[in-house]
Write a protein that binds this DNA or RNA. Structure first.
Lengths: 171, 171
DNA sequence: TAGGTTTGTTTCAAACTTGAACCAAGCCCG
DNA sequence: CGGGCTTGGTTCAAGTTTGAAACAAACCTA
């Protein structure tokens, strides 16, 4: 089968998208690195934890929410733990499990960094978009993400759906 | 001044966007790594070169088009040069300059990889979006990119505009 | 034209990411 | 029970990115 190349419109959209996402991620990383001494992903880890019940989450669940590999998460958590921003705890119900728990210091760091981060996201993203566009962005993003998730490590169609639950947060 | 937090709509859009861009970039990187043995950025370098006059471009111009730092480009170009996919040439008009020139092998690799890459972009992105959404994505991306560019290394307002030209491609 | 600044590029060390092992601990089924 | 398969996490080496520093050539400007 011969390739269906991108139409000019698609080309333009693709290039604009790639450029924008690079620039945006860069800007956000730089701001957070400056103001909080950590890249965006690390900030996100703290952020997700802060919103989780008891401010703790199992590694796998955390990786799942952040859409990153376990390996990447392990590295990041190790660093954050060294910095005292979170603690690893053992899981009582599943001895394989490891739980990342935000420390008070981690929470404090997050609180200090949040305003600057939000300002950045606002000024580089939302201040540039109309309300309508914000909605469009969400829909487009959701569509993309959906297509990429159901794929993942192919659940193989005949997989038993109710078995695909993530393990308990072990609270 | 007190922080203007994100509205729920903005929150949703932001999270969806972050997730989508992570997943998409991951998927594309993996596909290209598999099929062409290089990450997305490296493929883009070859691609940009292939469309440039004489398939060559100065480092700075290349970095500018790709929206990456010179340092990052240097590293990537060094690798690609080792692989024989491009060559560095001296610039005759500006002895500081360095030019990246696509080799025939580089072009061949690009040609082989292109169909798979396009398929991936198509199936993960454009197949999921309506025509309308493609247009929206372009506009949104352009708006974001614009805001982030004019910033860059602040041209300092009083800068002389006509001096800000990029150097000749030195063809 | 000498000295100071800017511009183009590379270099270097430290930080981060990747993917493929690896090691347990749970799970399953005979 | 006792293997074998799956799952949760980490480890390790190789590759990539970052940002600051180093250089060198080009460009002023007095």
């Amino acid at each position: 089968m011969t390739t269906r190349w991108l139409t000019p419109e698609e080309q333009r959209a693709w290039r604009a998208y790639v450029a924008a996402s690079l620039l945006l991620e860069d800007a956000i990383d730089r701001q957070l690195q400056q103001d909080a001494g950590m890249p965006h992903l690390y900030y996100s880890i703290l952020s997700v934890l802060s919103e989780s019940p008891e401010r703790r989450l199992r590694m796998t669940d955390l990786a799942e929410r952040l859409k990153i590999t376990r390996s990447r998460l392990t590295y990041a958590v190790t660093r954050l733990e060294k910095d005292g921003l979170l603690r690893r705890e053992a899981c009582r119900y599943d001895k394989r499990g490891s739980i990342a728990a935000l420390t008070d210091e981690g929470f404090a760091v997050l609180e200090r960094a949040a305003p600057g981060h939000v300002d950045t996201v606002r000024s580089f993203l939302f201040d540039r978009l109309s309300e309508e566009q914000v909605g469009q962005l969400e829909e487009i993003s959701a569509a993309i993400a959906q297509g990429l998730q159901e794929d993942g490590t192919r659940p193989a169609a005949d997989d038993v759906p109710w078995r695909r639950r993530s393990s308990p947060t072990c609270s």
